[in-house]
Design a protein around this nucleic acid. Structure first.
Lengths: 134, 134
DNA sequence: CTTTTGTGGAGAATCATTCTTACCTGTGAC
DNA sequence: GTCACAGGTAAGAATGATTCTCCACAAAAG
């Protein structure tokens, strides 16, 4: 944990370690609020403001990402920084991570061949809306 | 305009017509605030609360969509309800609509063949992050 | 015409997020 | 060790977007 922070150029303070750990432990795409609750379970003196600021600095240095959400009234963070896609269940509003290297390759190839006018793509993320079936 | 509202099952009031027109006129993905300003230019008596409520009801009946945005501090609406993708410029934070039927077909085929476990996809939207080049 | 229902305006209330301020802690210079 | 400093943190105020409440009004139904 300390190494990851150091590698990112952040001082490995107690709070940052806790917040990073909490983020990794929490499933899915937690909000700042949820991270704060998780942190509080361990150390009840960390303030919500610190969680916000720390998460933002994590995003800045690439330790975490913000996930886009159309209806969210609040921001969500994703500790998985590798490229991946999202399944969005329109019933439960759940967002599920989805990883598929074949799909990545397909998309990458498509844009390598076709190209985009006036735009240099760096990363792709497919948002798949639908419903869960049992 | 009236027909579109009626078809969606909404009473075609003066305010709704105005808001729908404003939404169509505004380029890109306006915020409720921007729609309100546009509406005010024409009829300065429409309240911001009405714009919010009306936009939400438009989303409910499918007259408009919310666009997902990772860093947005506020919601944005998209009057273009056809399937399309988004180019996101990491420099200017601009979101540009991008439409490509070939790409749609490619993705559709991929999932038609492969399928997803426990998930029935309805629509796809690709988020392409990168930078604009002149 | 009267009743019923849906709609809109104004502003208060709420919620997430950011900012401000003052305090604290670890670090390096001496 | 001690001093000064820089960065980090807590607490709460401030902000900004969104939602809610409440009342008035207008349109449709009977």
């Amino acid at each position: 944990m300390q190494q990851r922070l150091a590698a990112a150029g952040l001082r490995a303070t107690h709070q940052r370690i806790l917040i990073l750990e909490s983020l990794l432990v929490l499933p899915g795409h937690p909000t700042a609020e949820q991270v704060h609750r998780q942190v509080m379970a361990n150390t009840p003196t960390v303030s919500l403001g610190t969680v916000y600021k720390t998460l933002d600095s994590f995003v800045e240095v690439g330790l975490t990402k913000r996930v886009a959400s159309a209806d969210a009234q609040c921001r969500r963070y994703d500790s998985d920084c590798s490229e991946h896609h999202h399944l969005y269940c329109t019933d439960t509003k759940e967002i599920i991570d989805y990883c598929n290297p074949q799909l990545d390759a397909l998309i990458r190839d498509f844009f390598a061949k076709q190209g985009l006018e006036n735009f240099q793509p760096h990363s792709f993320s497919l948002h798949i809306a639908g419903t869960r079936v049992s």
